[in-house]
Design a protein around this nucleic acid. Sequence first.
DNA 1: GACAGTGCCTAAAGGACACA
DNA 2: TGTGTCCTTTAGGCACTGTC
Length: 234
Amino acid sequence: MRKAERLFQLLTLFQGRRRPLTGEQISQLLEVSKRTVYRDIAALQQSGIPIEGEAGVGYVLDRHFLMAPLMFNHDELVAIRLGMSLIRASGDDALCQAAEQVLHKVAAILPDTEKDPFSRSALVVPSLNLAAEIRRHLTVLRGAIRQQQCVQLHYRDEQGQTSQRCIEPLGIMCYVRHWTLIAHCRLRQDYRAFRLDRILSMTVSDDVFDVEEQKSLPHYLESMQQQYNISWFF
DNA sequence: GACAGTGCCTAAAGGACACA
DNA sequence: TGTGTCCTTTAGGCACTGTC
């Protein structure tokens, strides 16, 4: 067994274990000598792993310690919580469900002392109270964007004028309490933004499109940034 | 007495490099 | 590309000390 694998196994042995492990027990479990165990423990301790050894007792890992890939500091946990709250406040049903699952997964790997603070965030997000139809639009359009499928749109603009058009959906942004679809309009041969709450009806077609550099979401956002000095988060 | 911890030595394994 | 050599790293064994 390679040393890196053995160090990982050693750490795994300690994870979730309250009772101490003696050097002898570890050496038997890992099938190495006690001398090697001592060296491995020293290597982990030098890396900042809080393993404590006591003569006549054995070694224990600090119960608050989590393995690096699953370890979050307080601000990171707040960021995760806030992000999931934003999704639950403004996402469609599938995204809301996914956000709930993320919260459960993160909570499951937190130590007991962090579970309660994580479940009670001081940062709150007001719900957009999206109508069921808009949530459905959001789900359908996310799928069309992913599959690069054209959409036949029946749309009513700000002046109340209606239009029928074929669009290539590129992205969806949450803009001032409204979800807005960014698309390349085949009718106008240019970018157009469509508020989801103004879509009268739509149909995803079998016609697929290619995303080109001059006809893409990054290109659109770059032009908006130059024009209006707006920054975007993904 | 049991076990953690350290120092020293030795052997094996693995990597780097030169050379045919 | 395969082989041999050298050097470094890793791991085991033993003896010993310190601590509870």
